[in-house]
Nucleic acid binder design. Structure first.
Lengths: 270, 270
DNA sequence: CGTAGCTTTGAGCGGCGTCAAGAGCTGTGG
DNA sequence: CCACAGCTCTTGACGCCGCTCAAAGCTACG
């Protein structure tokens, strides 16, 4: 699952952000040291400053902070091709409490800040792409903010699951089984784990999720999008609407079950 | 109040983002057509695409969307020197429902997208500053997300008022009377107007806000920051911590009452 | 086969929304 | 100068969603 074309998602992402193939290649050449991170471990640790940036090559992660009372607040999900800690390049003195944790087994790569300096000067379109990516993050965060404040628990959970589905598809993973624990969902939707469970129970009763216990498997995506009020357009990287029916990429789509890792991540999580 | 040095906040903002005086001047020369917007009117309208960007020279505004049920969702506040619609330059096909509304009387100026193209090429540090500003927005949105999900209404309102205080000071307004209606606070904190009122009532009883009815006047800023769990560092533009006591710029500070417009804006708001 | 972590289910409660009504302030038109 | 309209602010009663506490069943793994 991990092998084959580890750089494909990164390439397609940057091309959709307006970067030429030559420029992406220049970036790839500097992403040298690859390494693995097991599920539950931190990819970027809080209160630690690096002189390099980290790029997620495969797997899935989340950015989060740990509050005083111990709760983990998830702010966003990261997938193949996403940089984890560019804020530490551009604003090194800020967001020191923000960390990134692997949700499943991941492989990552790093690039020195000094190399980025040179890249930006040499390739203005790459520079523009980074700005675009930041603006996309703003857009996604607005969506999360809206989702967090508005509506019932069912809507919030449904919306979250829809985003996960679409973002996984964007990098070529078509499984309808989401490799995420209910606790992760709780921290991302800002609900208690108990109530997330009750909510999922309802979605199962409505035949939107599979009744197969111990896994989150989406059966009826359209219904899920309807419940969550999900509009996938905010996720499309190139900003060009694909002209679908208002639920983003959630219409049809073939499915290739990738059951490699679905639940029960060993998790050295605290 | 508006006159004198209309560009001062913009200059200081971009200088703190690492732009040289010469580059700011180049930007200023292109910000030509100035105009006024009265309180309650839209500065940027939803579902309208422009070929220019708008910069707020004076006053205060908020970015928002209108939900299906009619509620106004406020995502951020804008002050002097902030650009209102750069997302339409960098991602023209997205966030079409996002609008910007003047909270008080404002003066604005515009710059053509084509001019920005040229500026970015000629002045890479300006380009970098725009990226930095976007990252700052991400940082602020994370704070709002955290604030929206965590804690009680009192904390959320207190946190919001603290941000308003600090951001107004950052552009030289030292008044402790906030020119904002309780309804605006409600839409920004995602609470009902009724409950915001009750919350303010409590803060008044605790001598954190003035009991002077019909205006939000902060008396005890330290207490307010404590209640709201406010850490002003996320607002500092240059990213360099000023080494204060953990409540950002909320320590002391002279006050110059600027009562020009405080409440009871006529408001053609729907 | 025991332990650790995730999931499931129940009981009770409290914060915040909703609905409703009234009062205060401002600007407008007669 | 007064009346009116249209805000915003204020206050009360009531109901519900989601949190907390608590305990038990499942799955994986050493």
């Amino acid at each position: 699952m991990l092998g084959r074309f580890p750089n494909a998602p990164l390439i397609s992402k940057f091309e959709s952000l307006g970067v030429s193939k030559e420029e992406v290649d220049a970036l790839l050449k500097l992403l040298v040291k690859q390494s693995g991170v097991s599920a539950g471990a931190d990819i970027v640790r809080a209160e630690e400053s690096n002189d390099y940036a980290t790029c997620l090559l495969s797997g899935a992660a989340c950015s989060y902070t740990r509050l005083d009372n111990g709760t983990r607040q998830i702010y966003s999900f990261l997938y193949s091709g996403d940089f984890c800690d560019l804020h530490r390049y551009i604003l090194p003195e800020r967001d020191k409490t923000l960390a990134v944790q692997a949700l499943v087994d991941c492989s990552i790569s790093t690039i020195a800040h000094s190399e980025i300096d040179l890249l930006l000067i040499k390739y203005p379109r790459l520079h523009l792409a980074f700005w675009r990516a930041a603006m996309l993050e703003v857009s996604i965060l607005r969506q999360w903010l809206s989702n967090a404040r508005q509506g019932l628990a069912v809507q919030r959970v449904a919306n979250l699951l829809c985003e996960l589905l679409v973002r996984r598809e964007a990098i070529g993973i078509a499984s309808r089984i989401l490799p995420i624990t209910q606790i992760d969902v709780a921290d991302a939707a800002a609900l208690s784990a108990v109530h997330v469970n009750r909510t999922i129970k309802m979605l199962r009763k409505w035949n939107v999720l599979s009744t197969a216990s111990h896994a989150i498997e989406v059966i009826d995506r359209k219904q899920l999008a309807k419940i969550g009020g999900f509009d996938g357009r905010y996720l499309e990287r190139n900003g060009v609407s694909s002209g679908r029916d208002g639920v983003g990429a959630l219409s049809g789509g073939t499915q290739i079950e990738v059951r490699s890792r679905l639940m029960w991540a060993p998790g050295k999580r605290k």
